[in-house]
Design a protein around this nucleic acid. Structure first.
Length: 316
DNA sequence: CGTCGCCA
DNA sequence: TGGCGACGG
């Protein structure tokens, strides 16, 4: 959504002015991932827990402000392209309709999707902890707090990426973090990792404890074992804690998740359905879509073949 | 972001 | 074949 747009920030749109950047990105990116031999399972966010509302409200305000700035720049008509792009990207909205259409496209492509009852991150970690996936793919470290065995960051973004508000580009490489190894290296438990996160600040306590950063948080939890003890011993002042520690800890340890009801295998794709949606409905180029569908079918055959081979190898 | 066409 | 810039909807 952020990247697939014109230099001035205008997203791709069909002839009726409906945004199509999400469909474009999902379609071509998913095929690329499959060609690399990775079978994705897409997890969609459900209703966030009430404790997240403060953070969501904050994000909403930032977005509304960006929207105002963008409108202003457009009205003046003198805005720099860079500025226009910045505020367009900051005002991105994923509507319900767009999310539903994304699910529809993935389903037509035969890619497994899961609707999380609450946090998608928690659901993905749960699926991973059940052994139904090899890792979670996310930019968010929260996965690990939710108990994912492995987290792959930068799975889908390759090459160079621009640093926000700077004209500096950095090389982005995929990064694998294994929870067990991380905890062993730090000499802590997952509960303690969660406590460290709470001290620094999470979506559920965005401010954290003022004055405590990563290093202090680690030192405190290493020394006292848990936040409550650190408070008792006077290391963390009680007044600074404006949230319910046990409640937030519980959101990470026992999040609302569900066992996936359908299997998470690749299915055959509905070629006509894809063309109907992308070409007829949203003005995608027919040849490009046809060509991509061929790549999709080939990549899936190979992915499934590899799975079968793995199964056989295990057997013998 | 990913594809495509152009060019060396 | 690989780098680069324009374009996709």
């Amino acid at each position: 959504m952020a990247a697939i747009r014109q230099p001035d920030g205008t997203p791709l749109m069909d002839s009726q002015g409906r945004v199509t950047s999400h469909l474009n990105g999902l379609f071509y990116r998913t095929i690329s991932i499959l060609e690399e031999g990775v079978i994705p399972i897409y997890v969609f966010d459900g209703k966030p827990p009430e404790q997240k509302s403060e953070e969501l409200e904050r994000r909403k305000k930032v977005k509304e402000e960006a929207e105002r700035r963008l409108d202003q720049l457009k009205k003046e008509g003198t805005g720099e392209i860079k500025e226009l792009k910045k505020y367009s990207q900051m005002s991105i909205k994923l509507t319900n309709e767009m999310a539903e259409e994304s699910k529809k496209l993935l389903d037509l492509m035969g890619i497994p999707i899961i609707q999380a009852p609450s946090e998608g991150e928690a659901e993905a970690a749960y699926i991973n902890s059940l052994g139904l996936s090899w890792a979670t793919g996310s930019q968010d470290y929260d996965s690990l707090l939710f108990g994912a065995t492995r987290l792959v960051r930068n799975l889908t973004i390759t090459g160079k990426r621009k640093l926000p508000r700077k004209d500096v580009y950095v090389e982005i490489k995929p990064e694998l973090i294994e929870l067990a190894e991380l905890l062993r290296k730090l000499g802590i438990t997952r509960e303690q990792l969660i406590d460290i996160a709470i001290l620094i600040g999470t979506d559920y306590d965005p401010e954290g404890i003022k004055g405590i950063g990563i290093k202090t948080a680690y030192r405190i939890i290493k020394k006292y074992g848990k936040i409550e003890t650190a408070v008792e011993k006077g290391e963390v002042s009680k007044q600074k804690i404006t949230f319910n520690i046990e409640e937030i800890r519980n959101l990470f340890l026992n999040p609302l998740v569900k066992r996936p009801e359908n299997n998470l295998e690749l299915k055959d794709c509905d070629e006509e359905g894809i063309e109907e949606l992308l070409v007829k409905e949203h003005d995608f180029n027919e040849e490009r879509v046809k060509n991509a569908i061929e790549r999709l079918k080939k990549a899936k055959r190979e992915a499934k073949g590899a799975e079968r081979q793995k199964g056989l190898d295990q057997w013998f």
